[in-house]
């Protein structure tokens, strides 16, 4: 009887050590897999915040310029009074992504619209920033890839894009220069 008990005890202890060794090895393997996965995440130089300065004094009403902010296209546009009026006429409640023009321009900014030039659908660059390009049915930007129409405030009005063109953080560093980022 006592012998059998001892044998049982022995078996359990023996199993315990194997289970412990194997699970420790498993934990080790999982832990060493971690850096193998995280190395694909953006590296420190990519993550480092960078800013772009844009001189807006030369942009005339109705014109826009295309520049680069954090490796992506950035549209900076000076709106005409008509475009401002048109954008303010729209009932915000009817929009897919409900933002008013002032929400998008920011405090103390009358007419400089700063948006990413990246369609919120699947990332193409919308047309309409350059002279003579198709501005879409709402007179703003038009993405030719899948037909998203943005209005003069860069808000999505028609087509598959889910949200308005993104407005990055920006501020005026002087009368004529904005710093994006």
């Amino acid at each position: 009887m006592a012998d059998a008990n001892e044998a049982n005890e022995g078996v359990r202890r023996r199993d315990f050590i194997h289970v412990a060794a194997l699970s420790t090895a498993g934990v080790g393997a999982a832990a060493s897999a971690l850096p193998l996965v995280t190395q694909m995440a953006p590296s420190a130089d990519v993550l480092a915040e960078s800013t772009t300065d844009v001189d807006v004094s030369a942009i005339e009403a109705g014109q826009s310029i295309k520049t680069i902010f954090r490796k992506q296209p950035l549209f900076v546009k000076r709106l005409t009074p008509e475009e401002i009026a048109e954008a303010n006429e729209v009932d915000v409640a009817d929009l897919r992504d409900q933002e008013s023009l002032t929400d998008r321009l920011g405090e103390g900014n009358e007419d400089i619209l700063v948006t990413m030039g990246v369609c919120t659908h699947l990332g193409c660059v919308p047309l309409g920033a350059a002279e003579g390009e198709n501005k879409g049915e709402y007179g703003g930007y038009f993405c030719p890839c899948h037909g998203s129409h943005y209005d003069s405030a860069g808000r999505i009005r028609k087509g598959p894009a889910p949200t308005n063109l993104v407005v990055p953080d920006f501020a005026f560093t002087s009368e004529s220069v904005i710093r994006v980022g």
Binding site: P35, T38, Q39, A41, S43, A44, D45, V46
Partner: peptide, 13 residues
């Protein structure tokens, strides 16, 4: 050097 300095765990790799 980019691997050593910027890439996540790059120095370890």
């Amino acid at each position: 050097e980019h691997i050593m300095r910027n890439v996540n765990s790059g120095w370890l790799m």
